[in-house]
Design a binder for these strands. Structure first.
Lengths: 221, 221
DNA sequence: ACAATAATCCATGGATTTATGGAGGAAGCC
DNA sequence: GGCTTCCTCCATAAATCCATGGATTATTGT
């Protein structure tokens, strides 16, 4: 019959995966890795962590089986261990947002007031096909290269103001970034609107796009 | 632009949900709650916890928004806050099993050697329709009452040996219990086989059945 | 072989989590 | 009001987690 000690071991093993998700910085690292493979140094800088701290967090993720590594010369690349890990992270975000009011508040404080006017993935696809929208990817160029929506232009948000001329003036712009909690697309739409451009954002981002099994294009512009 | 402090707050808010999943005993409580509403005392006993410890864990789950309470006289009933919480728990189990070898080992140690011969939900439905299988629910009666597969008989595993006569001898028996990591159905199949009965188990259990949106019947036998 | 780069390992103090016992609060029964 | 039941809150000690800095390992280049 069910030995309580073995039962506890099984649930403790499951909890190891939960523990990996129990720290904000580790979730930030997962958020970055969901966009594509990355080196330790790059991850540490992007997440605002010391190198050793980032490395320690990555060990926890690795020992929980959520990420795997690949060595390339002197550099070690981390990536998610599978699509199911991305799905788990996305579902965690959704559950937190739905059932924990504090999450929604922190989200609004970080992203700015929720713009009501955003597009679903299907609406975006329709407009691209009809040619009634220009899609821009406002993530860092590195992440665009790792995978983006087919036909999207790479204009990182910190270059957007200086590259406004590249966008046709008579077509609506649709911006997207990493995922549901990514600030870049919010900032981009505010900036475009401030310059009198018609702009909306995709409701979520690349994470959810991949999970929906929609087509992804890789490589630089 | 993205304020790092606000960003950290958002990810810390997400991590609160992760923290709720970071302890084996809390996962055990979620496992029980996925079967239906339950009181604190009952949960504590079933999970092998002290009352105050169980209560403390339930507070953590409640503050993470994963469970909600309902008062009925002097008793407080806890239940999952929504189907998405059950889905999150199920996905956590799947990811842990797929990517963490220690989980699979602990699972085998607890459940016993994996029997190769188990049915999918669809196969079970087909056999019930064709009348070629008797389905038994080997969970505690309380959980059967809270919701079970339509047509299943309630025979808790600790009563199975003394109630063998209730099972028709010429029809195959299919046993199921809580979910993918539940020991009852494994034990039941071993016991039935030891008594010369043809028996298999459903590959997972009630948790996955509900998530698949298959019909559920409530109430006592 | 030696130096440089990228990342992990190790030790440490400070913060957080966990289990547990005792006190306290809310609802129901007499 | 008193008493019981069921549960939560509080205090505490042990265990664990976290960030950080210095030492160590692995690979590449000279």
């Amino acid at each position: 019959m069910g030995d309580p000690a073995r039962k506890a071991e099984l649930f403790d093993a499951l909890a190891r995966t939960g523990k990996a998700l129990s720290n904000g910085k580790r979730l930030e690292l997962l958020d970055l890795l969901a966009q594509g493979e990355r080196g330790v140094d790059s991850l540490a800088r992007a997440a605002g962590l010391g190198l050793t701290t980032a490395s320690a967090h990555l060990q926890v993720l690795r020992q929980a089986g959520l990420v795997v590594t690949r060595r390339e010369g002197v550099r070690i690349h981390y990536r998610l261990a599978g699509d199911d890990v991305a799905a788990l992270y996305a579902l965690l975000q959704q559950v937190a947002r739905t059932h924990l009011a504090a999450t929604e508040q922190a989200r609004t404080a970080y992203l700015g007031p929720e713009d009501t006017d955003h597009l679903t993935r299907e609406e975006l696809l329709d407009r691209v096909k009809a040619g009634t929208a220009t899609v821009i990817d406002v993530r860092p160029a590195e992440e665009y290269t790792a995978g983006h929506i087919p036909g999207a232009l790479s204009i990182p948000v910190d270059q957007l103001e200086s590259r406004l001329a590249e966008l046709p003036a008579d077509v609506e712009v649709v911006a997207y970034c990493r995922g549901a909690n990514c600030v870049f697309a919010h900032d981009a739409v505010r900036l475009l609107n401030a310059h009198g451009r018609a702009a909306k954002r995709l409701a979520d981002g690349m994470l959810e796009w991949r999970l929906a099994a929609l087509p992804v294009e890789a490589g630089a512009a």
